[in-house]
Structures are given as structure tokens and as C-alpha cells.
Design a binder for these strands. Structure first.
Lengths: 164, 164
DNA sequence: GGCAGATATCTCGATCATCGAGTGAATGCA
DNA sequence: TGCATTCACTCGATGATCGAGATATCTGCC
């Protein structure tokens, strides 16, 4: 809406395109996860676990819950689910006997690929028509949009029972 | 992963960027809706209602449920919620007394803007650094990616109690 | 005109993810 | 040693969703 008067159309259309893509991606991921018996929170949790595990970080239930904006109760239930269907495991800390480390299993990594690979392939097929320069531009725009959204809300501090 | 050998990096990075954006957008929208007491399904429903209403289409509970992949039971509950918090209203059809048309209220449109406008503004601020040509490119890439995901799964026909 | 089947919406009981509050054990500080 | 804090978990409740079916209305056919 509000613009200085130069090129309103492109910016508006771009934001619209971003919105539409987010919508469709969300729906598609949800559906794909659903087919594999994984709910959206479980998918998010596994994504986080994989990223952190790949980065050499270990993840406590508290960490996971905070990153997903879940209460400790929900986090326990979430980890229970993941453990029950073989996608994660609990490893007690040796130094602090209250602490538990959550790590994803190989099955989880495999199932994750099984869910995301078809989507990635479909996109790759369609997107390979663009030139590297165009891709580069799109990457930069996406990064900027992501950053804008990411810095949009600062999670703020959280007491033991976190969200809301 | 699989590529012919020319420029693996850009395409891969692009898909990665799309994935990351989807993730952050999802989380942000979810959080924003949560703050306004609207759950993701309600938000989706309102989005659909606004689009269709703007296009001059009217929407039955069956339509809405099908587009959201909900059962008729869930759809009734959804519409009940929307009506209860003043975001939608039921209008019985004059020609077929079994039929009901769902339409969003002005409050809903207002609340929708209240939720999405800050995000859009934040993105607009950040994205206005790009040239119209770059935006154009990004729009095309996003459209292609959206299309790839959208045609990814054909919903297929659905009996009275739809999903799963 | 009237009845059988189709269609649209809603109701009922159950399941499951999440929440708020609180418990018990382990830790660290005074 | 004593006490507040931290961490993971348990319990009861809430609410979105589901599957199955009830109810009302419409349509086609005799």
C-alpha cells in the first residue's frame, strides 16, 4: 500500500509472491509430513535436531522446547513421541544427572530425506530453467526476506514454563 | 544432490534458501496468529474466505473443508469458532435450504491486516533495496517454486467425510 | 404427487497435541 | 549444612481434529 511513488508494483508483487509461496510450502510440507505420520511440530523438532547435530551441538529438552516455543510438558510429550517412533533418543548427561541430551536417529535422517527429497527434486526440475545469475538474485532476495521476518520478533526471556 | 555437472551450487543454495524462508515464514505467521488468538487453520480459512470473497465467489462449509483438508466435523467446528469470535458469518442460501454460505466479517479483514501488515512492512523495508529487475526475477523464481510445489500433489476427489 | 437416493450440514464420542501448575531430584552458593 | 535454583517430568484440563452417523433438504423417476 504505502509507497513513495516510484515502483509500487514490483515490491508489492514480490511480497505477494513471498506470501503465496509460504502458504503453499506450508501446506505441502504439512501434507507430506502427515503422510509419514509426522506432525508439524515433530518435523520442526527433527529439523532442529539435525541442524544442531550436524553443527556438533547437543540439545536438551529445554533447548528444544524453547526453540519450538513449547512448554516443558509439551516438550516431554514431543520427545516421548519421537523416541516412541524411533526418530530420536535420550542420552543422560554424565556430568549433570538432571540433564538429558536429545539426538536424532539414522532412521529420522532417512525419513526426513524421504519427505523432503521429492519436493526438492520437483523444485529443482522446475527451477533449473533459470540462469545462475537469476538464482543468485533470488537467493539474495530470499535471504533478505528471511532476515526481515526472523528479526521481526525477539523471543525474549522465558521462565521455566515458557510460552504464551 | 543429483546434477549434470554445470552449476550445482546455485540451484542447491536456492532450494536451501527457499526451505529456510518457508520455515521462518511459517514460524512467524504462527506466532503472530497466536498472539491474536487465531490458530493456523483459522488464519488459513480467513485467507481463503478473503480471496474468494474478493473474487466474488461464495464459499460453503464443504468448499472450505475441502480446501483445508478437514473433515466435515472439523469444518463445522472451525466455522463455529470463526462465527463465535466474530470473524465470519453463516448465510443460508435462498435457493437450496441445505446450503450455507460462509463470509468473513469486516472485523476479520481488519484483524488480518493487523496480523500481516507488520510483517509486510518489515519485509518491504528490507526488500526495497533491490532493483525492480531483481524483484522481477525473484517474483518469477518464487512463482516457479510455488507452482512446482502446488502441482506436487493432486488433492483428488473426496467423499463426504474427506481427509486422510 | 410421492417416494428413493443423493447431498449439505451438523452432532456425538474419542484421540491427541498442547497448556498451566506442580513434583522430585540434582546442583551450586552462602 | 541449608536453601534457592534448575532440569526433566507428571497430572489434569483445554481444544482442534477425526470417524461415524443423524437430520434436513433437494432431485429424479415412476
Amino acid at each position: 500500500m504505502s509507497h513513495s511513488g516510484q515502483e509500487p508494483s514490483e515490491l508489492f508483487q514480490l511480497i505477494q509472491a513471498l506470501r503465496r509461496y509460504a502458504e503453499v510450502a506450508d501446506r505441502t510440507i504439512d501434507a507430506a509430513g502427515h503422510r509419514s505420520g509426522l506432525h508439524r511440530t515433530d518435523l520442526r523438532a527433527l529439523t532442529i535436531l539435525m541442524q544442531r547435530q550436524a553443527a556438533g551441538l547437543n540439545t536438551s529438552p529445554t533447548d528444544l522446547g524453547r526453540m519450538l516455543s513449547l512448554t516443558s510438558a509439551s516438550t516431554t510429550a514431543l520427545v516421548d513421541r519421537l523416541v516412541a517412533n524411533g526418530h530420536a533418543q535420550r542420552t543422560p548427561s554424565t556430568t549433570d544427572r538432571r540433564r538429558v541430551s536429545i539426538s536424532h536417529t539414522d532412521t529420522a535422517a532417512l525419513d526426513g530425506r524421504k519427505i523432503f527429497m521429492p519436493m526438492a527434486r520437483s523444485m529443482a526440475d522446475r527451477l533449473s530453467e533459470f540462469t545462475p545469475e537469476q538464482m543468485e538474485t533470488a537467493i539474495e532476495v530470499l535471504a533478505a526476506a528471511t532476515e526481515a521476518l526472523d528479526t521481526f520478533e525477539t523471543p525474549g526471556p522465558s521462565p521455566t514454563n515458557a510460552p504464551s
